[in-house]
Design a binder for these strands. Structure first.
Lengths: 357, 357
DNA sequence: TTGAAAGCGTTACCAG
DNA sequence: CTGGTAACGCTTTCAA
């Protein structure tokens, strides 16, 4: 009795000697059915090895799929290995459970320009989605948002810029990093550099000029850098290609492996993962943290074995959970507005007084 | 010009003054179309704000969805924070790109018994899937496998036991841990304990008796423990509730915080993440590794800041990639058999001679 | 309580 | 090169 192709509900109904609609009702429970008919139908289903209604057909008819897209701005390796984003996704999964939604991963790593955007949209337009969470960085003028909006797919964004088309979960990146910068200023640091997330999705990395920084489409990356500049003036910004330990290490090496007179006395990394890479670079260059170099991060995740970072703590799991709950409400047809969560400065063991010149 | 509900291809065709089938062809490119008609249709689509064919309808018709289910045996937080499983998922995503498939996450954390299995199957039967990868641990007699097989969904498993219904990517867990055990035996260790993955999906944890160990449904967890016993005899096995740093730390604390005479001189953890937790516990108990305690892991992932573990290195990204490629072949209708990859012993800095009694 | 029939939005097979 | 039309497998009115 092997499953021949797949049995259909119609075959089950025929075998049971009832109508298609009656058979359907037995499984959906949409209305009462005589015990006798129910058993006939169930028996027929077992006999044919019918494994339940075809999800596709059911979804087409009902107009919902139980699938929520999760757009990630990194390749999975980095998205997962970052404890902060793992926490966000976990909280999200938790909340989406309530609406019996599963998460469809839609990675969109920083890479080459417009063509890349087009391929992301192309992939997305093939997916049947009840809603979407834009995890990772919010993008100014995002073609993905335009596409989903046109399809009428409800969206929740983590971060990003004000947008009528979606509801956002926010933290005040700019004032939070400004807090870090004030802390460094109070410690006497004058030569400070920022290690920034990708500012565009073009895959570029390296020193950033004002034009690129101010026009950056990745809001989070820009705001965190600008928060530092609000306090310390036009400090140099170095953009990395990915939010990874290795990228942070490489960037720090580029910034630190120079004439000690010109070398920054403090590095502000836009995430704890990057900051961990900075610490590794400092160690391998023989620099003591915080005596020779102060380092700050962002996110406030605990990385076992790493020294406790001076960083900004933001509630990752709660952000994810909240985003999920907001999407659940949108799926029910409710209206949802932006929500701002608070991030708090946490002084750790990686910042100290600026070294004497 | 707001999107009124959603335009359908029929409306586009009508507005363009062509037939439904012609309109369809303009977008699918399934056959040549006059430039003039193409433009009429495209113009109509733009005017109506039509955002491409409804994925559900298209999938129903074509019989494929572009979605691959990924069954995880942990809650997302642990699956993601484990660098090994992050690497697997990244490799998988990489390979699935070739078949333009996206990954639908189907977490199945260890939790309460049969009811839980049923709810996992229920959730899965609502999802339209082209194929499935059973990541995480292979389960003996898995109801999920039965369900998917009945639906005719192709499956690839990472690990697990021989099963006609799916193709597997394997490493020889048992002989690999036996290698670790031999290494410890050669160092003179006699009091060794194993910290094991969940052996069932019942969410239980604690010391394991022979019955539970030998009858365990989670093949990987059982085999790794048995590999140690093959060499060292009936060493105690402590089962954790999850593959997390915290669980490893707690388990180690339970095993180590006893009379030094009875205390194990070596702990074999079934993953590097658990081993990292063990190291943390040892540190907080004032035990020096490897002088007072030897520790081994499994996976061979590099954890920044942690001392280099003695462990078994297995190629996570390659395993994931291979699983993805195998699934791609299955989706093309090819036949695929099991593949075994090699895992290699790596001696690190966390094992040393057994302390004198 | 049951059955017939009309969709859900496409694609793919035929004739023209 | 184009236009009908029949599926895809199910749910859901609406009558009986």
């Amino acid at each position: 009795m092997r499953p021949s192709g797949q049995a259909t509900l119609k075959q089950v109904a025929d075998l049971a000697g009832v109508s298609l609609s009656t058979a359907s009702v037995v499984f959906s429970g949409a209305r009462p059915v005589t015990e006798a008919t129910r058993e006939k139908v169930l028996a027929a289903a077992v006999e044919l090895g019918w494994s339940g209604p075809n999800p596709l057909a059911r979804s087409l008819r009902q107009g919902r799929t139980g699938v929520v897209g999760v757009v990630l701005s990194e390749r999975l390796l980095y998205a997962f290995r970052d404890p902060y984003s793992a926490a966000v996704l976990d909280g999200l999964a938790d909340a989406l459970d309530a609406s019996s939604s599963s998460m469809l991963l839609l990675p969109r790593p920083p890479a080459g320009g417009l063509e890349h955007d087009a391929s992301t949209v192309a992939r997305m337009s093939g997916a049947a989605l009840d809603g979407v969470v834009l995890a990772g960085c919010g993008l100014v003028d995002d073609p993905v948002v335009a596409h989903l909006h046109a399809r009428g797919v409800p969206m929740v964004g983590l971060g990003g810029v004000p947008d009528e088309r979606l509801a956002r979960v926010l933290v005040d990146d700019r004032s939070a990093t400004a807090g870090l910068a004030r802390h460094l200023r109070d410690l006497g640091h004058e030569r400070v550099a920022v290690i920034a997330f990708p500012l565009e999705l073009d895959g570029a990395s390296g020193p950033v000029d004002d034009e690129r920084l101010l026009g950056a489409r990745v809001a989070e990356a820009r705001e965190r850098a600008l928060g530092v500049r609000d306090v310390l003036g036009p400090v140099p910004v170095l953009e990395v290609g990915a939010n990874s330990h290795a990228a942070g290490e490489q960037a720090a090496r580029d910034l630190l492996d120079v004439d000690p007179v010109a070398r920054p006395t403090a590095l502000v990394a836009e995430s704890d993962v990057l900051a961990a890479g900075v610490l590794a670079a400092a160690a391998s260059l023989g620099l003591d943290v915080p005596r020779d170099l102060s380092v700050t991060g962002f996110d406030g995740v605990s990385i076992p074995w790493a020294p406790e970072l001076t960083t900004v703590e933001q509630p990752g799991a709660e952000k994810g959970r909240l985003a999920g709950e907001m999407l659940n409400r949108l799926l029910l047809g409710e209206t949802v507005g932006d929500v701002t969560m608070t991030a708090t400065l946490r002084i750790g063991a990686t910042t100290g007084p600026a070294p004497r010149a």
